[in-house]
């Protein structure tokens, strides 16, 4: 009887481990990159594991950027939003992303107090001199998962921010080779050329990205806010360049395309302004 009771213990541990593993899987869902179609079982298994390590590296990058990542779901796309904010500021527009440093709401129970004492729970961005600390994680991310588009896009952005344009271009070109149909990477390359004032190349890449977004095929299905921001920025940047080089009708077309695929974006106001400006001229 006693032995039977005792034998329940390891069975319990195994059951708990299994339940834990299932629960762990569900919490990773938001980070999982959609894998290519047509892989066999072995490829899927190892591909999944590789993507998991890539996602883990992305989470580490997030953790570094925020000096701690206590509530992953809430933070998952903040880094992407920050990148968008940086780019929008460059265009002289606002993104709506709040850069304010925020502290997590601290709970009063004992466990939360102890947890807050042993883990990093405050959310404050790295200082500009420390920002390069996020860089290794994007390299780790794409080395483990060369199809991790987000790793290439954000990593490329940071390399440029750190004054390493050649490295940024090399990194993004590698991303393009590994993901030739990614609109996000085309957009990131366009951004690189835009910042180096090579507007013809920027337009070339933005037009490719625009077509890919409009086609709405893998890997360009909008699965998170980060991708939505990327798509939004592609059209805004393209329209901005067209406006600046004196092609307002192309800019108008671009706004209309954006409105067509994402009516929630308030771009018709911009289009109307452009039309008024043109009629006035």
């Amino acid at each position: 009887m006693m032995r039977q009771r005792i034998a329940i213990f390891p069975v319990g541990v195994i059951l708990i481990s299994y339940v834990a593993a299932v629960l762990l899987g569900s919490s990773l869902k938001s980070y999982f990159i959609v894998q290519e179609q047509g892989q066999d079982v072995i490829q899927k298994m190892f591909g999944g594991l590789r993507a998991l390590v890539g996602d883990w590296a992305f989470i580490k990058g997030e953790e570094y950027y925020h000096r701690g990542l206590p509530f992953m779901k809430a933070m998952a796309y903040h880094h992407g939003e920050s990148v968008l904010a940086g780019r929008m500021e460059h265009l002289g527009e606002e993104s709506g992303h709040d850069h304010q440093h925020e502290d997590r709401e601290s709970k009063k129970d004992l466990f939360s107090k102890i947890y807050a004492s042993v883990k990093v729970t405050g959310d404050s961005h790295l200082t500009p001199s420390e920002e390069k600390e996020v860089l290794p994680w994007f390299y780790v991310e794409v080395r483990f998962n060369p199809h991790d588009i987000r790793g290439y896009s954000i990593g490329g952005y940071w390399l440029q921010e750190f004054g390493r344009p050649e490295e940024a271009l090399k990194f993004l070109k590698e991303g393009e080779r590994n993901n030739p149909n990614s609109a996000s990477i085309q957009m990131s390359l366009a951004w690189y050329y835009y910042t180096t004032r090579d507007f013809n190349s920027a337009i070339e890449y933005l037009e490719k990205a625009r077509k890919l977004w409009l086609d709405d095929k893998e890997p360009n299905h909008i699965i998170n806010e980060y991708m939505r921001s990327d798509r939004f920025f592609t059209f805004i940047l393209l329209a901005d360049i067209y406006k600046n080089i004196g092609q307002p009708m192309d800019a108008l077309d671009t706004y209309i395309d954006l409105y067509y695929i994402d009516p929630s974006q308030n771009v018709m106001e911009k289009a109307m302004q452009l039309t008024k400006h043109e009629s006035g001229a």
Binding site: K132, E133, L135, P136, W137, Y139, L159, F162, E167, F171
Partner: peptide, 16 residues
């Protein structure tokens, strides 16, 4: 000895 994007001296990464 790691260098990423031509940058070196990643203190946090090394400690991690």
């Amino acid at each position: 000895s790691f260098s990423f994007g031509g940058e070196k001296g990643f203190t946090r990464y090394f400690k991690e």
